Structures are given as structure tokens and as C-alpha cells.
Computed example of a mutant assay.
Amino acid sequence: MTMKPTSEDICPSIDARNEYGPPLDFSFKSLTSFTDVQDENPREGKKKVKKTGEGKICTTAIKFNNNTLTDLNGLSDIIANMLFQPEVLSSVDLSFNDISKIGMEICSYPSIKFLYLHGNGIYQVQEVDKLTSLTNLQDLTLHGNPIVEEGGYRQYVLSKLPGLKNLDFSVVTKADRNDAITWGKMYGKRRRGKKKKSQEDG
């Protein structure tokens, strides 16, 4: 006999933020691509996942950390298929994977405030440019990627994303913002020229 979900498990029409359930957690699932997600069940936490009557997950956060994902291809399909209101997605954890480039699919969710990309293989700092359309982004992590070894890394990121409040779990100070503005004026054009040249060479 199939048990019907209770009212506590169902979120019909959500307006209040507190009606959303815990993050949808696919961490430590040995995922190599987002197509693998459809064959996996999310991790169970202390709080029960909330669903609509159609089986959509009611959450504003999703976790794919500690897998072996190499790119973001298919991310949009998974989010569209699983989440009740993808447009309110505010937190995405992609840390500790093998991602080398920031796919544009992440930019389809303008409500994102928290984006965790630390512990990946992003090697071109210009990949950060793709995130400029995420105007609500407040907290970004990129430490543990090759780009942090580049001179002026922090200034570059903050010059491109002036709305950040935290970068690599470190509060962005007024001095940081001033340094980023100064750095952008001194080196911004040079960086853009370097990027254009590398694209031509490729």
C-alpha cells in the first residue's frame, strides 16, 4: 500500500522563505557528470526534504561537492527537472571536483548568492568574468584552484564582482574594494589584452 505524502512533506504554493526545505545534497556520490544524478538519491539529512505533489523538491540550495565532475554540462536540466522553483536557487556548492572552466549554465540562476567552487582545477582567472551577470552574488570561493597563484588574483576577482561580501571565506573590506578599483585602473586593460591574445592563439 503506497503511503500518501503528508502536508509536512508537501509545499504547494510557496511565498515565505521559511517554507523551503534543506539543501538537495548530492555530495560524495562519485558523480562524473550531471547525467549521473538521475540515477542517484540525494543524501538524507536531519531535516526531511520537502516536495510538491508532483515530486519537485522545495529548496533554495543544492550541493554537488566532493565528486569528480569536470564541467557543468547538464546542470540546467537537472535543476529544471528536480527543483520546484529554480528561479529562487540561492546557493550552489560545486567544491572539490575537477571543474576547469565555469560553465555559463550557472548564470541561468540570477538569485544565486552563495557559490562554492574551491578545490577545483580552474586555471584561467578570466573565467570569473562569466559570473558578472550574477548580480546577487555575495559569497564566492575559488581557493584551491590554480588561478589563486596568479598575481593580483583577489583584486581581479573583486574588480569584476564588486558586490561580493566574502571571497574565499574572507570578508571583503573597504580596503579590498579600494585596492580592486586601483588595480582595475592600472592592470585591467592589460588583462583584457592578454585574454584576447590567448584566444587568438587558441
Rank of each mutant, 00 (worst) to 15 (best):
M186V: 09
S76P: 00
I102T: 08
F84A: 09
R192C: 05
S76V: 06
N73T: 14
Y123L: 03
K46F: 07
S91A: 14
L161G: 00
S95L: 04
L167H: 02
K130T: 14
L161K: 05
C11S: 10
L134K: 02
V128G: 02
K63C: 06
L89P: 02
F169A: 14
A80D: 12
I62D: 01
K185R: 14
N145W: 09
P110H: 10
L115A: 11
I62P: 00
V37F: 05
T173H: 02
V172E: 00
K189V: 12
L161P: 00
K56N: 11
T2C: 08
K195N: 03
N73Y: 10
G74N: 01
R177C: 01
T59Y: 04
T70H: 04
V92D: 00
T68Y: 07
E19G: 15
K185Q: 12
L158Y: 01
T2E: 09
T132Q: 13
G74M: 07
V125R: 15
V49N: 03
L72R: 04
L158D: 01
L72V: 03
S100W: 01
N65V: 05
V88E: 01
R17T: 14
K189P: 01
K160R: 15
T132E: 08
G193W: 02
Y123H: 12
A61M: 11
E87R: 07
Q85Y: 12
L164P: 05
E200C: 03
F64V: 08
P146D: 13
L164Y: 06
K165N: 10
P86R: 00
V88R: 00
T173S: 15
